[in-house]
Simulated scan of single mutants.
Amino acid sequence: MTVGMTEGSDRISMAARLRNNFLTGLIICAPMTITIYLTWTFIHWADSWVKPYLPDRYNPEAYLKFAVPGTGLLIAILFITLVGFLGRNLIGRSIVSYSENILNRMPLVRTVYKSTKQIFETVLKEQGNSFKKVGLIEFPRAGTWALVFVSTDAKGEIAARLNQDGEEMVAVFLAPTPVPTAGFLMFVPRSKLMLLDMSPEEGVKLLISAGLVTPEYKPSVADAMAAFQDLAVDDPVEPPKRAGRS
């Protein structure tokens, strides 16, 4: 009877080891495979957009007998960098201004161009604070908290209409789980927003993993002192009582 139990335990142990080894291998291989696949797909997508417009004299594949992946992506990066360099001098700014005047005269095109330009200027602005902070708001009801990315302070008409009580409003982006490609733009009072110390990258990881990948948290000295003060207030130490005379 003991021998049978030992053999059954060995089988269970062997099955558990195989399962653990498989899960460990999956954790190692899956992220690497997905990353390589997405990178390779993006390179081919960029090549398919650039190579058809590339003259044969500048195309390395015209001289080689094999395809060179990444040529289109490299040329696109160089071209965008060159346009940015030219756009920072006087002649380049004049050309860009003239092109913008032409686009602004087209009824449908000007709306798309202005909206797209405003989005890129806001997101790629070097000194901007867009999506550099992560916070929590009570959503969808009081007592439950949702992770949000802080966009910017409310401006324009929204600020004029919502800041009537004297409290500033903040624009936040509430992304769904596990694919944060769409979500809700919400305006909340600054006092209702709880800012976190985690970076936006850590917030995205927490969001995509549905809370499974939690970033490491090291409380600051101020937080530790505040927690100690709260503990001292909640549990005050009573002074020892002096024994009375009998």
Results as ranks from 00 to 15, higher is better:
Ala67Phe: 12
Phe22Val: 03
Tyr53Asp: 06
Phe85Ala: 05
Tyr58Phe: 11
Ala62Trp: 14
Pro52Cys: 02
Ala16Val: 05
Pro55Phe: 01
Ser99His: 04
Ile12Gln: 14
Pro31Ser: 07
Thr35Trp: 00
Arg17Asp: 06
Val112Cys: 09
Pro69Tyr: 13
Ile102Thr: 06
Leu74Asn: 01
Arg93Met: 08
Ile12Ala: 11
Ala76Gln: 04
Arg105Leu: 01
Leu23Phe: 14
Ala46Phe: 11
Asn89Ala: 10
Tyr113Leu: 08
Lys51Gln: 13
Met14Tyr: 08
Ala76Val: 01
Arg17Thr: 10
Asp10Ala: 03
Tyr58Trp: 11
Leu82His: 09
Ser115Met: 09
Met32Thr: 13
Pro55Ser: 12
Leu103Lys: 02
Tyr113Ile: 12
Asn59Lys: 02
Ser115Ala: 09
Ala67Asp: 15
Tyr63Leu: 12
Phe85Leu: 07
Tyr113Trp: 13
Phe22Pro: 00
Phe66His: 13
Asn101Cys: 09
Val68His: 00
Val50Gly: 01
Leu108Asn: 08
Asp10Pro: 03
Ser9His: 04
Arg88Tyr: 00
Ile28Phe: 08
Phe85Asp: 01
Met106Tyr: 00
Ile91Trp: 15
Arg19Ser: 11
Ser97Ile: 03
His44Glu: 07
Phe66Gly: 05
Arg57Gly: 05
Tyr98Ile: 15
Lys51Met: 15
Ser48Arg: 12
Asn20Gly: 07
Trp49Asp: 10
Lys114Met: 06
Arg93Glu: 07
Tyr53Met: 09
Trp40His: 07
Leu23Cys: 10
Arg88Cys: 00
Leu23Arg: 00
Thr41Leu: 04
Leu73Ala: 10
Ala16Asn: 10
Leu90Ala: 15
Ala76Met: 06
Gly25Pro: 00
Asp10Thr: 02
Ile43Gln: 06
Thr33Asp: 04
Ala46Trp: 11
Ile80Trp: 07
Tyr98Asn: 13
Val68Ile: 15
Thr35Arg: 01
Arg88Asp: 01
Phe22Ile: 06
Ser115Glu: 08
